[in-house]
Amino acid sequence: MILEVKDVSKVFTVERGFFKQKAQAVRALDAVSFRLEQFRTLGIVGESGSGKTTLAKIILRLVSPTQGAVAFDPARITDFRKDVQIIFQNPYNSLNAKMRILDIIAEPLRIHRLVPRKGLKEKVAALLSMVGLDRASMARYPAEFSGGQRQRICIARALATQPKFIVLDEPISSLDLTIQAQMLDLFMRLKEECRLTYIFISHNLAVVKHIADSVIVMRDGRIVEACDTQAIFTSPQNDYTRLLLEAARG
């Protein structure tokens, strides 16, 4: 087991009015628990407002939970910011437009002092080729790339620290369908090459079916169903899961 999420809840308070008087509580996550084995892929499925992105941010320690705990296996995850990475949904917003690709991908290497300065360019070139981009991309800026290419750059940056665990938060849903299919292949290849564990968040059941070993279905901050990928498509237990399947089948 590499990750255990135990009884995690998150309440956001929304302040209203001039004197911020009416504090309104929004329960984004409600007692979410699950475990994940190393080298497996967990799919998290849910619609907007289901709390799946909040969960991703809590796992990444970008947001702190109101209750509960997220525990990584200390034997496997030694340096958190190095070993655990995230890919966001929108590749247009997750790259700093003012930085060259070289600096974007080299940033984690510099922060964690992973590569001597002389070897930086070579390492970045190697990372770029891992995600299927050429060396010349280094000198360019994010605006010169398409959505799919930008997402590849994000992946190269995430891989720079040789992570063991990556959370993919709707990593392909803003892309064209043919690009989505390519990216999905890339994720599966990298998982083997780099011996990764994934959490793959998506609203698209077909995508999850392809990549995940087990699936969690979320609605309104709760887990409504959790089981093996096969089982969820052949014998869904929950009504909401059935509704999702039905919508996807058309």
Partner: peptide, 13 residues
């Protein structure tokens, strides 16, 4: 053909 292949792969269940 590309579009259909992508659809077959991830566009439908």
């Amino acid at each position: 053909k590309e579009l259909i292949a992508a659809y077959e792969k991830i566009g439908k269940l």
